[in-house]
Simulated scan of single mutants.
Amino acid sequence: MNAYNLVVLDMAGTTVADGGLVERAFASAAGRLGVEPGSAEHATMLDYVRATMGESKISVFRHLFGDETKAQRANAAFEEAYGELVDGGLIAPIPGARTAVEQLQSEGRTVVLTTGFARVTQDAILDALGWRDLVALTLCPADAGGRGRPYPDMVLSAFLRTGAVDSVRDMAVAGDTSYDMLGGVRSGAGVVAGVLTGAHDTGALTAAGATHVIDSIAQLPGLITELESRR
């Protein structure tokens, strides 16, 4: 039996390369709420968006705009803009990501894909990549109580819904941001792997609790096999 039979993976920056679409979609959303591109306010907001990559997007907009109505408007505009960019073909899998997922599944592991985006955007990404049937379960914040990362809710929902493992220590979590790492650590996962294909560097990932840092998700199956051999 494998030890780490449940593997929970982030999407954008980890298994999916979006080429800075988050920033482009944010600029569009902020513009609709009267934040002028190039202004000091826009620059400050963009810095916050970059620093909180991986967090639930509605949480980011609540912080930026304060007012719930404005936050909801901004979030809706962001999701619409991001979806249009995805539909325009401006998204691709991280090299080796699909192969890694398929390898993990061929070894008898359950793989779950998670995101900080809304369900409509997550589905648009899955459709654009032809990944609708790649894994049995995909989760967005709304599927796990609405809080999103850095809360562990999506990882724990994967644990409860799949029944793939008996202990949270037998889960492996991977992501490209400090928020992914925090969510993994708080879930109790035995492996919390940071990847260097997205928003945050080794220092940020390690500081947030990464147990391991790898160059790419393509290296995750090998890392898990190696760790299991030591147990």
Score class of each variant (00 low, 15 high):
Ile91Met: 05
Thr52Ile: 00
Thr44Ile: 12
Ala71Arg: 02
Thr225Ala: 15
Pro37Ala: 12
Asp166Lys: 06
Asp143Gly: 08
Ala77Lys: 05
Arg50Asp: 08
Leu160Asn: 15
Arg73Val: 13
Ala3Asp: 09
Ile58Asn: 02
Arg147Ser: 11
Ser106Cys: 13
Asp201Ile: 06
Met171Lys: 03
Gly38Arg: 09
Thr69Ser: 12
Arg119Ile: 13
Glu36Ile: 15
Ala207Arg: 14
Glu41Val: 15
Ser187Phe: 04
Gly198Asp: 03
Gly175Phe: 03
Lys57Glu: 08
Lys70Val: 07
Glu68Gln: 07
Glu36Asp: 13
Thr138Glu: 00
Gly163Trp: 04
Asp47Lys: 14
Asp47Leu: 15
Ala71Ser: 13
Leu139Met: 11
Val60Phe: 03
Glu23Arg: 07
Gly183Cys: 12
Arg109Lys: 12
Ala40Glu: 14
Ala158Phe: 01
Val192Arg: 02
Gly38Met: 12
Pro221Gly: 04
Thr197Gln: 05
Arg98Pro: 02
Asn5Phe: 01
Arg98Glu: 15
Arg169Glu: 14
Ala100Lys: 04
Ser39Lys: 08
Leu137Lys: 03
Gly209Met: 05
Glu23Leu: 14
Thr177His: 00
Ser167Ala: 14
Gly188Ile: 10
Ala207Ile: 11
Ser39Arg: 09
Met45Trp: 05
Ile214Pro: 02
Ser157Leu: 09
Leu160Glu: 15
Arg186Ala: 15
Val49Arg: 00
Gly88Tyr: 03
Ala158Glu: 00
Glu107Ala: 08
Ser28Lys: 04
Asp127Gln: 14
Val112Arg: 01
Gly130Ala: 10
Ile58Ser: 00
Gln72Met: 13
Glu23His: 10
His212Glu: 15
Arg231Ala: 15
Gly108Pro: 03
Gln103Val: 14
Leu134Glu: 06
Ser187Met: 10
Pro221Met: 10
Thr211Gly: 05
Ala218Asp: 09
His200Leu: 10
Ala74Pro: 03
Tyr48Arg: 14
Leu134Gly: 02
Gly183Pro: 09
Leu21Ala: 10
Leu137Glu: 06
Ile125Met: 11
Val35Gln: 06
Ala210His: 01
Tyr82His: 06
Thr52Glu: 04
Ala25Trp: 01
Leu205Asn: 05
Gly175Val: 07
Ala25Met: 02
Ala144Ser: 11
Leu129Trp: 04
Ser59Asp: 07
Ile125Asp: 02
Tyr82Glu: 05
Gly148Thr: 07
Val86Leu: 11
Gly145Ile: 13
Thr15Pro: 00
Ala189Arg: 04
